[in-house]
Amino acid sequence: MQNFIEAYSWVNMRFLLEGLWVTVEVSIISIIASFIIGSILGVLRYVKIKYLSRVVGFVVDIVRNLPLILIIFFTYFGLPHLGFKPGIIFAAVLAMTIFESAMLAEIIRSGILAVDYGQMEGARANGMSYVQALWHIVFPQAIKKTIPTIVSQFISLIKDTSLATIIVLPELLNHAQIIYGQNSAYIIPMFVMIAVMYFIICYALSVLSRVLDKKLA
């Protein structure tokens, strides 16, 4: 018990919260960016523009089927070869965004496919152009249909930021490791604390998704 009280000292907690902030920061930026890019990629894959849709589909499939850790290495170690030197946070955000965009593209595309084709035809018959019908009628419904899946993907994103500890992103898990690396009596208290922190964030998001799902249904 004594270990727990000492482990949760103000200094350690502040250090952990600094890590938590990086986790949250990276997650929020990546969530917003990957939602936008994932939507564009998903639509592009759906509309079947010759070559482009093929290429998008191929790239999305490659990225989706690689472990995220590899993508993290590629952005942090690989990008400078293109003359571009990302900082650690930027590299992490970029890796998460690339990976999650590909995952979301697939979710959103299947959402669009699930929207009744009659909707599209009806909208076109009412004088909308293909793009208008897609943007105003089909896309919003596809998002509505896939909200639970999209949110659970976002939850995965938040959890997966912990993988970036391998390139020493100063996020929650990394800061916990630094604390228990200096005093092994804190190992269990640190595991408990970060598990609770991750749980609270992710669980809150999943509750939010359920509420949203009910409201929209």
Binding site: I155, K159, D160, S162, Y198, S206
Partner: peptide, 22 residues
């Protein structure tokens, strides 16, 4: 279900690697 869905896999794996053997 809720516990293990909402904690990172890496944290769970490290838990088994570090704490269980102790």
């Amino acid at each position: 279900i809720e516990i293990f869905r909402n904690i990172p896999l890496l944290v769970i794996a490290m838990f088994f690697y570090v704490i269980i053997p102790m």
